[in-house]
């Protein structure tokens, strides 16, 4: 588990370094995700030089463990709402309406386009 976590951190660190060195307009962890994906896609050819945790399911277990607790990780930033109560009081209803309507629109646009194109490529269920 330690090696897997370290690999994930290493991808994130490399991502952050690339973002700052090249001025890429993407957050470091996103580049880290792309790097880990590349590592996974190449793991069969790289097996001799990679730690065994990449190939024996340990990396998957660690990653899925992190993702299973994703909800928890939103809480500290979310509690930050206590600092912004002034804004909630003054613009709360407007922001709430904007968020509810836009989320509904985005969900409907997403499923509509997905269904339409799925029919087009013969992947309809």
């Amino acid at each position: 588990m330690l090696v897997s976590l370290e690999l994930i951190l290493l991808c994130q660190l490399l991502g952050e370094a690339l973002v700052h060195a090249l001025g890429v307009p993407l957050p470091g962890p996103v580049i880290g995700m792309a790097l880990l994906l590349v590592l996974l896609l190449m793991r069969d050819t790289l097996t001799p030089v990679l730690p065994h945790e990449v190939g024996d399911g340990t990396l998957e277990k660690t990653s899925n463990g992190l993702l299973a607790n994703l909800s928890l990780m939103f809480i500290p930033a979310g509690v930050g709402v206590v600092q912004r109560l002034d804004l909630v009081v003054s613009h709360g209803p407007a922001i709430l309406i904007a968020l509810i309507v836009s989320t509904a629109i985005a969900l409907l646009a997403g499923v509509a386009v997905f269904r339409l194109l799925a029919r087009l490529v013969g992947e309809e269920t």
Binding site: P29, M33, L36, L41, L67, N69
Partner: peptide
């Protein structure tokens, strides 16, 4: 709470795993 908050970065990187699977 920052210790929990910090894990958001690694969790974002970990999204590569379901994507790959």
């Amino acid at each position: 709470a920052q210790f929990v908050h910090f894990m958001l970065g690694p969790a974002t990187v970990a999204l590569a795993v379901p994507l790959y699977a």
